[in-house]
Write a protein that binds this DNA or RNA. Structure first.
Length: 155
DNA sequence: GCCAACGTTGGC
DNA sequence: GCCAACGTTGGC
């Protein structure tokens, strides 16, 4: 059982979009970064939990919780010429990109903002708080996970 | 294999 | 809109 933090721009796909999907489930597609691809393909398992982080918005922060409802499988949007995520190097025979399916668990009443996360020494080692971190999915430790849940409850 | 140029991310 | 950071590309 692992914990994750997954970033998305709410203008593109936010937690409300996930909430409105059938079964509140969606494929986390379009990841085109090798480090993140490796996590999707090899390390994220059904039953893992993830924070849904809203980026490039005001305010950036954690909006709620999802579970990984399907482990890594081939990202078929790479095969679709009309998709913004099309990549001719990826083929059904030799796929390059992967995705997981996520299901909404809960929306926080108030997001736990980036500013709030920075206030806590316990969270200082989080990848999301490190300068220059650009990975859209990062692992979260059990300690960090539980601490943030308390912050969400207090909000 | 090096590295400069370029594109993207994402907070501010 | 700005800009720092960093991944990727491609010439050599």
């Amino acid at each position: 059982m692992h914990y994750w933090l997954m970033k998305s721009e709410p203008a593109v796909f936010g937690i409300d979009d996930l909430a409105s999907r059938p079964r509140q489930t969606a494929s986390w597609d379009g990841i085109r970064n090798y480090q993140v691809r490796n996590m999707l393909r090899d390390q994220m398992h059904k039953g893992d939990l993830a924070f849904f982080y809203h980026s490039s918005c005001a305010p950036p922060g954690i909006a709620g919780i999802m579970k990984i409802s399907r482990a890594g499988h081939v990202d078929t949007t790479a095969f679709e010429p009309k998709s913004p995520h099309f990549d001719a190097r990826s083929t059904p025979g030799q796929p390059l990109w992967y995705m997981v399916d996520v299901t909404l668990v809960k929306r926080f009443g108030q997001p736990v903002t980036l500013t709030e996360l920075r206030r806590h020494a316990t969270l200082r080692e989080m990848f999301i708080l490190r300068r220059g971190n650009r990975l859209s999915i990062t692992p979260v430790t059990t300690k960090q996970w539980q601490y943030i849940l308390k912050l969400a409850d207090d909000a």
